[in-house]
Nucleic acid binder design. Structure first.
Lengths: 152, 152
DNA sequence: CCCAATGAGTTGCGGATTGAAACCATCATG
DNA sequence: CATGATGGTTTCAATCCGCAACTCATTGGG
């Protein structure tokens, strides 16, 4: 998936210094994050991912392989005997905040007021509150009150 | 960008009920979020976006147009007289938590230990703390302690 | 044992998307 | 007027994607 030529060996990233760009090199395509979303929601098998996302099967094959190769999923034999299954690794599970913020942005900006949509709730059925960036002292942070510091 | 045939008119979404999928329909491609990232970091002009991302110019034209059409950017004449510029709208700025969680995931999982990367710091130069999902009572939430509730 | 169904892919192919590079129009400056 | 910067558009080849058909290995009955 990398696209910029490097002078040295190893995986070549779009923007090697930027963690945002590196993450997008791994999951910044049309389908990967929807596969992760469904994995978080209980999908385990090839067919189940295919049914939920509606993705083309050859593309699903490719995405499952890439996500596995990058350590977001592991393929293992299901506890119930003989079938294979895909499960989230710790790194994969750690994408939860990403999926959540994508969800919350969508709820705010991709639906007309009053239009129904699915909701994320906790174990008691209470909606998950908005995830808002804050400094160590608790003050909210945004693009205007932060900036990127180059590596040194 | 839509990919699933609809029976009725209007924009057709990959998965109309899911806010995650709708967000990805708008910014879930290779470049859009990097453009947003650079806009948050001060980029304003076509040339500046092109320089920072390294994206092909025709694709940049397309992305800027789509992001503008979807209300994440506005094109306006720069305060300094005659040049055009692109600026984030409120909806665009509201992607800050998404960019931040992508960044933090990348920092944790896309760099080898000790490898240098850029950092996000607040106005005083202090690193922005990890953004962690929590319930109304403050207990941390993850994929295992939440679930999606279908719209009703 | 034979037949069908299911799961998990693979293959082939046409059409859509992307990337690289060249081209073009409009200013501003020297 | 020549040069350079800005902001694109055009062209064309390469890649990616979706669809449908095919394979292959397991079950599950009858």
């Amino acid at each position: 998936m990398p696209r910029i030529t490097t002078r040295s060996s190893g995986p070549d990233w779009t923007d090697p210094d930027c963690p945002v760009a590196r993450t997008l090199d791994l999951v910044g395509d049309r389908w990967s994050l929807l596969v992760i979303r469904d994995a978080m929601d209980g999908a385990r098998s090839f067919t189940e991912f295919q049914r939920r996302t509606g993705i083309a099967r050859n593309i699903l094959t490719d995405r499952l392989r890439k996500l596995t190769a990058h350590g977001l999923l592991v393929q293992r034999t299901a506890p119930s005997g003989r079938r294979q299954e895909y499960a989230l690794t710790d790194a994969g599970r750690d994408l939860f905040p990403v999926i959540l913020t994508l969800r919350q942005w969508g709820e705010r900006h991709a639906f007309t007021p009053g239009e129904p949509h699915s909701t994320l709730v906790d174990q008691h059925g209470a909606p998950v509150p908005a995830l808002v960036p804050a400094g160590t002292d608790g003050t909210p942070l945004d693009a205007d009150t932060t900036h990127v510091q180059k590596p040194r």
